[in-house]
Design a protein around this nucleic acid. Structure first.
Lengths: 220, 220
DNA sequence: CTATGGTTGTGAACGCTGTACACAACTGTG
DNA sequence: CACAGTTGTGTACAGCGTTCACAACCATAG
């Protein structure tokens, strides 16, 4: 009966010798592990177990655990980008299309709001996305991007560019602005999922999110 | 000769059966491990090795690895508090003692600057301090505090209080202000040690630090 | 259609980790 | 001085990442 429990996540035993798409299966298992459990839960042996394969098989597709982890992390970044784009699209519908300034401002808020929402609803993936040095910047890897082809950091940069184009943000304050905005929002996200705000109620968290975004807009 | 290498960090073999102060020795070893290597390098077996003791001996002083880790983390937070207090003291000498507003402003900047400096010079300890949920808040544990008895978060709160007292920050904006300030500065610290700013030169990092602190002051 | 070489999964093994249990050496107290 | 509690030891287990030699399969050249 213990076996039954373990097999609950294991696939039906393969009939073919070859798996078919083990690489994909391992990444998917890794994503599932990261989703509930965060970065440390991405365990090579467990991933192979879920793929119904012996541990070493993973080494035909990844140099080591770290390589598998990087693939999972790319997926996490991509998921974050998707969440941000979704929020962006939703915001676009709420705002006067003929007011580019309002539109650009709404975009920046949507970026921040999407980021914060993702951190709170997909905490495991969020932690995984930032568990390791390197944060994409001008990394062109599409595996880290959303459907629009931009990764989270690039989405933020694009929103800031639109803010300048709309005349809301003076061009001379544009350089480096993504670092200020990202710092504030990312910091708040951590405070909420790990820090003193972890037990704050929803209203409080939303209010603080608003306030941070206001601070960014004002202080940029 | 391999042994010689390993013994380089091992203490001379004990002559007494009892260690004397194993708990302290384990924490110190843990701090050293965290210093260069970050949270994951805090390995129970390695700590006991450095203390010149068999692995299980640790369990007489800590319930498990996590408990040892928490003790190390407390020390890391305390070290951060010390760095902040040091910066605070240095700032106090540079500013006109009769201008409380300037003084309060300088304090807040010193808090932020000390925080950023610590993150960059003691990266392993910094990471360790924030590797785990919970961030002190009103935790009275003196092990997490500096010589003044306040932990990092409380130091920030006190600086904000002085800002209100000096009439720089309107009292109605005080509640929650520590979250905004902490978010921005902590976010920047991460950007610098892990993110796109990791290869930015010193001047750039200092400039961004200034800018974030300015944003906080303005946007609070 | 069959030999041949490359690809992908298996089996067994190693050293590392955290942790549990029983035992030995010591220390302080009655 | 005996005895109980404390602290360190020895042995053991499961789980992890990783390596090596081997087996099963697939694709392609002859």
């Amino acid at each position: 009966m213990v076996t039954a429990l373990k097999l609950a996540v294991a696939p039906p035993p393969r009939t073919t010798y070859r798996h078919g798409d083990l690489r994909r299966a391992l990444i998917d298992a890794g994503i599932a592990l990261a989703s509930d459990g965060g970065p440390d839960a991405v365990v090579l042996r467990e991933a192979t177990r879920r793929a119904g394969v012996v541990p070493n098989a993973a080494y035909r597709h990844f140099a080591n655990r770290q390589a598998l982890f990087e693939a999972v992390r790319a997926a996490a970044l991509s998921a974050l980008a998707v969440a941000m784009e979704t929020e962006l699209a939703a915001a676009a519908e709420q705002v006067d299309r003929n007011d580019p300034a309002a539109r650009a401002r709404a975009d920046l808020r949507a970026i921040g709001a999407g980021y914060l929402k993702f951190a709170q609803t997909q905490t495991g993936l969020f932690r995984t996305a930032f568990a390791t040095p390197s944060m994409v910047e001008d990394d062109p890897d599409p595996a880290k991007a959303g459907p629009g082809g931009l990764n989270p950091f690039q989405l933020l940069g694009a929103a800031l560019d639109r803010l300048v184009a709309a005349g809301v943000l003076p061009a001379e304050r544009r350089p480096g602005a993504e670092y200020l905005a990202w710092s504030a929002v990312h910091g708040l996200a951590l405070l909420i999922i790990d820090g003193p705000l972890r037990h704050a109620d929803e209203a409080m968290r939303i209010a603080l999110g608003e306030r941070v975004l206001a601070m960014v807009e004002k202080g940029l």
